[in-house]
Computed example of a mutant assay.
Amino acid sequence: MLTMHKMSESNTIPAEVVIKIFGELSLPDALHLAAACCRLRQVLVENTPTIYKRLRRNIQCEGYARVLLADQGGLPSDSSSVTIQDLLRLRRNSRMVEKAINVFDRDITPHIRIPTTNIDDKFYGGKPRPLHLTPTERHRFTRSYYQLWSLFLLDRPSRQQRYRSLLLKHLYMVYEMIDLDQLIGDEPPPPTEKRRELLREVDAYLCHIYYQTHGKDYIDFSGQSISMRTQGHAAIWDHCQPDFKQVVCYQWRDPQKKPIKDEDVWEHTTDEE
């Protein structure tokens, strides 16, 4: 971070250097830096797409954040161009997700109990399950939150099209996220009929796509895992992933049946990305 002394001399710093400095920061820090003086803001405004190419590495679930931004009226998610207004909206959205995670970590995560120590050994380095979301769990939460928030903004035909673009794994996780005991994004209080409508739609499409994929009736994952309290969010926890994958990929299927490729139903990227 530039010191205030250097800020006062920012006119003497080449723009190329300032651009590199912006690119090493998080999005909030970059916006704070731009607010320090007129020239720094000017550099950001005039070079936003270039700077964003570096900033985006530090935005969790950036692809899903960009889809939400587009659904909010911003530039298309595949556009390489972004504006200051887009950056401000991305920061606001990420803050709302972070607030939702903080509430979740306060109300839900500490109450997860694992009855067998071998689970702790396998997934948590031999230590008790942490009282907060792990990095991979935060990724799953953030991704699902952005996806559900987007659905709130779309009309019914657009939502139906979006459902068809979701992997089966992600449909499960969005379905669980609908039951989140807090408002989603800019959802007006109390939870509205729109949420109930989404619950019905996602449930119906999830049942349909599961049968279409596996030729079997939909398997509800909640409660399928080994005896543990999942607080209604079974698909998010690290220790539930093996059982969750068995359900999504239907790994109890007839061995004579042609196996479903993981990338068709499970994921194209890891939960660390």
Rank of each mutant, 00 (worst) to 15 (best):
Ala65Pro: 01
Gly125Pro: 04
Pro128Leu: 05
Val174Ser: 07
Pro190Cys: 09
Asp86Pro: 01
Gly232Cys: 01
Val45Pro: 10
Asp107Cys: 06
Thr3Glu: 09
Thr12Asn: 11
Leu90Cys: 00
Lys261Gly: 13
Lys194Phe: 04
Gln224Asp: 14
Gln85Ile: 15
Glu187Trp: 05
Ile59Asn: 04
Ile119Arg: 07
Ile226Gly: 14
Leu75Cys: 05
Leu153His: 12
Lys261Ser: 13
Gly73Glu: 02
Trp237Ala: 06
Thr213Tyr: 09
Ser158Gln: 13
Phe141Thr: 06
Gly232Ala: 02
Val18Cys: 08
Asp105Met: 11
Ala34His: 03
Ser79Asp: 13
Asp243Glu: 14
Cys61Trp: 02
Asp155Pro: 13
Pro130Asp: 12
Gln241Ala: 07
Glu272Phe: 09
Glu62Leu: 00
Asp220Thr: 06
Gly125Gln: 02
Asp220Gln: 09
Gln160Arg: 15
Ser8Glu: 15
His170Trp: 13
Arg56Trp: 06
His32Tyr: 14
Asp120Tyr: 11
Glu62Lys: 01
Gln72Cys: 09
Glu187Tyr: 01
Val82Glu: 00
Val202Lys: 12
Tyr218Arg: 03
Gly185Leu: 02
Arg156Asn: 13
Ser10Val: 08
Met177Ser: 09
Leu183Gln: 04
Met228Trp: 01
Ser10Lys: 09
Leu25Ile: 04
Ala36Leu: 15
Lys194Gln: 14
